[in-house]
Amino acid sequence: MEIRLNGETRAVEDGLSVADLVASLGLGGRRVAVELNREILAREDYPATRLSAGDVVEVVQFVGGG
């Protein structure tokens, strides 16, 4: 199935959990935040939250800034 991840279309396996998505990006245990369809997802909900086709996911982190 396809999702929108940080503005790009991405093919992922059906029913992938948010925890697995974050881990597949090498960001497991990192200080990131995830939005699913414009709603912020609490970290403890990553494992139980399964993605559906067409979901819009944003994964953000901290970068240099003033």
């Binding site: 991840l5 940080n6 503005g7 790009e8 991405r10 990006l25 090498g26 960001l27 990192r30 200080r31 990131v32 935040a33 944003e58 994964v59 953000v60 982190q61 901290f62 970068v63 240099g64 800034g65 003033g66």
Partner: peptide, 19 residues
């Protein structure tokens, strides 16, 4: 220290992190 919040680069996400 101040930091900004930005999208992770999903095509190269494993890079070093500011923190």
């Amino acid at each position: 220290v101040t930091v900004a919040v930005r999208r992770v680069n999903v095509t190269d996400p494993g890079r070093e992190n500011l923190l």
